[in-house]
Simulated assay, not measured.
Amino acid sequence: MTLSLTSFEQDWHAWHVDREAYFRDPLGWVALTGLFWLTDTDAAVDDLPGLWRADDDAVYVGADISEGLSVDGVPVDGTTVLHPVEGSPGLLVAAGDRRIEVIRRTGSVALRVHDPKAPTLAAFGGIPTFEPDERWLVTGTFTPFDDVRTITTGAVVEGLEHHHAGLGVIDFELAGAPRQLVAFRGKASGFHILFTDETSGVTTYRACRSLAVADPDSDGRVTLDFNRASNLPCALTDYATCPVAPPENRLSVAVEAGEKLPIR
């Protein structure tokens, strides 16, 4: 006998399918094959075409047109200057089927290489999860800070920092005890939460997981669905520069919900 799924389970399964499709992008996170930090001296980088260097203002890539580099469809023939923005998604340089992502992090510049033929992408078998359970769907109350606070966290790459816009705190109850999490500004709306719990480093990724939370209602109420606790890209690749959770967001409870540690 086949059991029908509840709307809660159907919604969760649709979210999970979307998450795995996101990581199967042929030029996405699982397709990364390297992370290379630049210096202020022209140098070849791994097997990439061209010579690369960076300073406090820009990135410079020099190549002959025959080397096949291009930026926004324009071939690189001589020296091209790029201006990656601190903390933002990188600028892309095409090199055949590969994409070279130029990023600036904590003042330094690196190249991330995306390759649709990456062995990690071919071997990607999906993201293991806990079974969805409505007991991990909880209501909280958002209390804004008087002013937006810049909250600095470390990163999975030693020496890097991330600076987050802290908007306030969310108070809720979980496993019979009061809890609180600091909420950062979301990408488009709502909140973005980075947290660890007693599963971190055991069955889930050690640095943190992420939770998206919609805007509060008129009474400040929000919904926290830990069934959608998500891995950051660094859980699936060694070539990401993801943040770690702030000390305030380390929960002393095992949140056995959401995404587990991927098998690599």
Rank of each mutant, 00 (worst) to 15 (best):
M1A: 14
M1H: 14
M1K: 15
S7F: 05
E9A: 15
E9H: 13
D11P: 04
D11C: 07
W12T: 03
A14H: 11
H16K: 14
H16C: 11
R19T: 07
D25S: 12
P26N: 07
P26F: 12
L32D: 08
L32M: 14
G34N: 15
G34F: 09
T39G: 07
A44I: 12
A44Q: 15
D47T: 14
P49E: 14
L51M: 10
A54Y: 03
A54E: 09
D55T: 03
D55A: 04
D55P: 02
D57F: 05
A58G: 03
I65L: 14
V76I: 00
P84V: 06
V85Y: 03
S88K: 13
P89M: 00
P89Q: 06
G90L: 04
L91D: 01
L92S: 06
A94T: 04
D97I: 07
V102W: 01
T106H: 04
L111Y: 11
P116K: 00
P119T: 07
F124Y: 05
G125M: 01
G126S: 04
G126I: 10
I127G: 02
P128G: 13
F130Y: 06
L137N: 11
V138F: 03
P144D: 05
F145Y: 08
F145W: 03
F145N: 08
V148M: 05
I151L: 09
T152F: 04
V156F: 06
E161Q: 04
H164L: 03
G166A: 00
I170L: 02
I170V: 08
F172S: 07
E173F: 01
A175R: 01
A177K: 13
L181H: 00
L181N: 01
A183V: 03
A188N: 15
L194C: 01
L194F: 01
V202E: 12
T203Y: 10
T204D: 02
S210L: 08
L211G: 06
A212Q: 01
V213I: 11
S218M: 11
V222W: 08
V222F: 10
R228H: 00
P233I: 04
C234D: 08
T237D: 01
T237P: 14
D238V: 15
Y239C: 08
C242Q: 09
N249M: 12
N249R: 09
A254L: 14
K260L: 09
P262L: 03
I263T: 14
